[in-house]
Design a protein around this nucleic acid. Structure first.
Length: 425
RNA sequence: GUGGUCGUAGCUCAGCCCGGUUAGAGCGCUAGGUUGUGGCCCUAGAGGUCGGGGGUUCAAGUCCCCUCGAUCACCCCA
């Protein structure tokens, strides 16, 4: 047993999985940068107050915050999500609007880990601040949709709903509370507890016992203001115009309190674990103002990297790829020729690896094979004295002998030309 | 925070029910078979406080208690 291992809810992302994570971010950046979004990197921790606007009835705030007092006596919290910090940054720096940004990074929530849920978890996402156009909601949703498609996922379902404006929402919650209270005898014990804290979230219950009560509950659409209703209608019209399939789910309630009007969620139906929501978002028009900034509209989404990759696994798409090695240099003299040849080969734009610690030729050839190299360049006694090297094609086993000084030229013949690495010498 | 399942070699696991020489297998790793050549095959080797602590016993990987960790689910959420 080693002295230390990862803390609960955290884990090491090792190769080749780590390479897959990096590729994931790259695909995401490609998709959203095509729509004018720019990368933003907020701090991993903020003053606790920044995050309290997520909702004082939410678990994220009441029991999952990773907070502590720093040496200066400040009450600090590790970010449980990105949106609040980005709104704080907007209020602090006041960039020109609309401010369209994307991010990729870790969040922290003190929860018990299970499949697709960790204490340190990664999200990618986008936020747009300073525009209230419903067609912007459509753009945001569409980019999420297109990203899943870019990964190759097919079994992703989009659910949309409108929570109305704050007044609509309050009126609806009142109506919902009285309905649920009147039916509480039929609700599960857990649902009754949830009803006390936040009636909206009862709608999220997956317990069969609660299904009939939920089915008969009043729905939000009857409580929407005219403005909110028109806004939602435009969102729906935009999704139709883009041909993006969706399901209006009046029971869709997001976990954070700052959402109003449009909310949406991406569900991976191919996942067989409990966490099938791979992403979600919505509009949060009051959040910047709550954080002391100007009244500013906002909309965005966050996608869970772990869960999305689990969905990729279950659909057998977006597998990780190990980096390719073009050339493996086998040097059984003293390794010095391998050192200089690798350097030259890499400078010419090819990938090159070699063995260390003076191992046998057989052992070095095994290493060449294992790393998937296309070509082995062999330096034995004969080659060393003649200034040549033997170039072996590892798939066909054909060998040719060339001057070491002509190796790069030879590689361009068999592997094609490459863009030379930027010279740092 | 609550509950189920599980911790034995680097990895995947057998052995535990029914306690009894020196704890096994496959894969991986290292070396050799092949004195200059990978994959396939054969042989050998290295690698273990049986998660940790306590208890029962002549004797514990095996039975009991505690604890830590993992995993899945609930709650909630990405």
């Amino acid at each position: 047993m080693p002295s230390f291992q990862t803390s609960p809810g955290t884990r090491d992302i090792l190769p080749p999985q780590a390479g897959r994570w990096r590729a994931f971010s790259t695909v995401f950046a490609d998709v959203v940068e095509s729509a004018g979004y720019q990368c933003v990197i907020p701090p991993m921790f903020e003053e606790l107050g920044v995050f309290l606007r997520l909702g004082d009835a939410t678990d994220v705030v009441t029991k999952e915050m990773y907070d502590f007092e720093d040496k200066g006596g400040r009450h600090i919290a590790l970010r449980p999500e990105h949106t609040a910090g980005i709104c704080r940054a907007f209020a602090q720096h006041r960039p020109a609007t609309p401010w369209k940004v994307w991010y990729s990074g870790s969040n922290f929530r003190y929860e018990k880990a299970q499949a697709g849920r960790y204490r340190q978890f990664d999200q990618v996402g986008i936020e747009v601040l300073g525009a209230s156009d419903p067609l912007l909601d459509v753009e945001v949703i569409a980019l999420g949709w297109q990203f899943f498609a870019a990964l190759g996922l097919r079994s992703v379902e989009l659910m949309v709903n409108s929570l109305g404006d704050p007044g609509d929402r309050a009126a609806y919650i009142d109506a919902l509370r009285s309905y649920l209270t009147s039916q509480s005898g039929q609700l599960s014990e857990e649902a009754r507890a949830t009803l006390e804290r936040n009636p909206l979230r009862v709608l999220d219950s997956k317990r069969p016992q609660d299904a009939s009560v939920i089915a008969g509950a009043p729905t939000i659409d009857a409580y929407l203001s005219n403005d909110a209703r028109e806004h939602f209608a435009s969102v729906i019209a935009g999704l139709d115009a883009l041909g993006i399939p969706y399901r209006v789910n009046t029971g869709l309630v997001r976990g954070l309190d700052y959402y109003q009007r449009t909310v949406f969620e991406f569900v991976a139906t191919a996942l067989d674990n409990a966490q099938t929501a791979v992403g979600g978002g919505g509009r949060y028009d009051g959040l910047v103002e709550d954080l002391g900034g100007p009244a500013t509209a906002g909309v965005g989404f966050a996608l869970g990297v772990d869960r999305t990759l689990l969905a990729c696994d279950s659909e057998d798409v977006f597998a990780g790829e190990s980096p390719l090695v073009d050339v493996f240099v086998v040097d059984v003299i003293d390794g010095m020729t391998a050192l200089t040849l690798c350097d030259a080969v890499r400078a010419a734009g090819y990938t090159a690896d070699r063995a260390f610690d003076g191992r046998s030729m057989k052992s070095q050839m095994k290493s060449a094979d294992r790393c998937g190299a296309s070509i082995a360049v062999i330096i034995g006694a004969d080659e060393a004295s003649a200034g040549t090297c033997t170039v072996r094609d590892l798939s066909t086993s054909e060998q040719t002998v060339v001057q070491q000084s002509e190796l790069i030229q030879h590689l361009t013949l068999v592997l094609g030309a490459r863009t030379p690495r930027r010279n740092t010498q």
